[in-house]
Design a protein around this nucleic acid. Structure first.
Length: 264
DNA sequence: CTGGGGAAGGGGCCC
DNA sequence: AGGGCCCCTTCCCCA
């Protein structure tokens, strides 16, 4: 089992704790270490995502390629801005930095949530992003969340992270308890589908096929990354030298080690 | 140094 | 409420 994800370089700050260690240890680790700012900055969606004419670092073709175009990251706009809300729900740096949400609109939009009525919010949202499909539900969540009195914080007993819903907390706790164990190698996972994906590494099953070539993948996200290799347009651009890359991780690597600022 | 594949983690949404 | 799935993201290795 040579995969490197089990043996990480000690010099690289770990983004996530080793939960399997955690399970039988005295829980000394903390999740409060500051999030890698370089990554955070690179991950922050620029206003240009909403304005394709501007630039850098920009998702050049999100709008062209993503058939599943999602609405803006409303979840990320939840009431962290309200002082009371911050007290109740402030998440760790890790959480605020690694969301898988699509780019959230640039500030100052978020700052208006604590003082804006849900109805005007909705009007603004529809005006800014016509065609958004899931707004009603999201706004319902916002309107509930914007009232600090109506919210409770659910804390993880293992790491003290706070969640707005019991369901979210339960989901998180699974990452500590790792209830899904691989019958082949004994590796444990937080969710059944993670285990399912892992089992494919044993069986060799690759249900996700590339429509452009003969390659197949065990993981849909990996197929998605692969599909970018068939495109002429590279998605991520370095703000300093304007080079483009197919993956954000390549851009990060480039920025951290190679980019001298000049065009290449 | 870059490009790409493999594996895994987490939050959110839908049913 | 819980399971399943989706999507995004990260990390590591190798060519």
């Amino acid at each position: 089992m040579p995969r490197s994800f089990l043996v990480r370089k000690p010099s690289v700050p770990r983004r996530k704790p080793n939960y399997s260690e955690l399970q039988d240890s005295s829980l000394e680790f903390t999740l409060q270490q500051p999030y890698d700012q370089a990554h955070l900055l690179a991950a922050i969606p620029p206003p240009e995502v909403l304005n394709p004419t501007a630039s850098l670092p920009t998702l050049i073709w999100d709008c062209l390629l993503a058939p599943h175009t999602q609405p803006i990251g409303w979840a990320s706009l939840q009431p962290q801005e309200s002082p009371q809300a911050a007290e109740l729900t402030s998440l760790s740096d890790e959480d605020s930095g690694k969301g898988s949400q699509p780019p959230s609109p640039p500030s100052p939009a978020p700052s208006s949530f604590s003082s804006t009525s849900a109805s005007s919010l909705e009007a603004e949202a529809y005006a800014a992003f016509p065609g958004l499909g899931q707004l009603p539900k999201q706004l319902a969540r916002l309107s509930v969340a914007k009232d600090p009195q109506s919210r409770k914080a659910f804390n993880c007993k293992y790491c003290n992270k706070e969640y707005l819903s019991l369901g979210a907390l339960k989901m998180h706790i699974r990452s500590h308890t790792l209830p899904c164990v691989c019958g082949t190698c004994g590796k444990a996972f937080s969710r059944p589908w993670l285990l399912q994906g892992h089992v494919r590494t044993h069986t060799g099953e690759k249900p996700f096929s590339c429509s452009h070539c003969s390659r197949a993948f065990a993981d849909r996200s990996n197929l998605r990354a692969h599909l970018q290799t068939h495109s002429d347009v590279k998605k991520y651009q370095c703000p300093r030298c304007a080079r483009t890359f197919s993956r954000v991780s390549l851009l990060h690597k480039h920025q951290e080690s190679a980019c001298s600022g000049g065009p290449r």
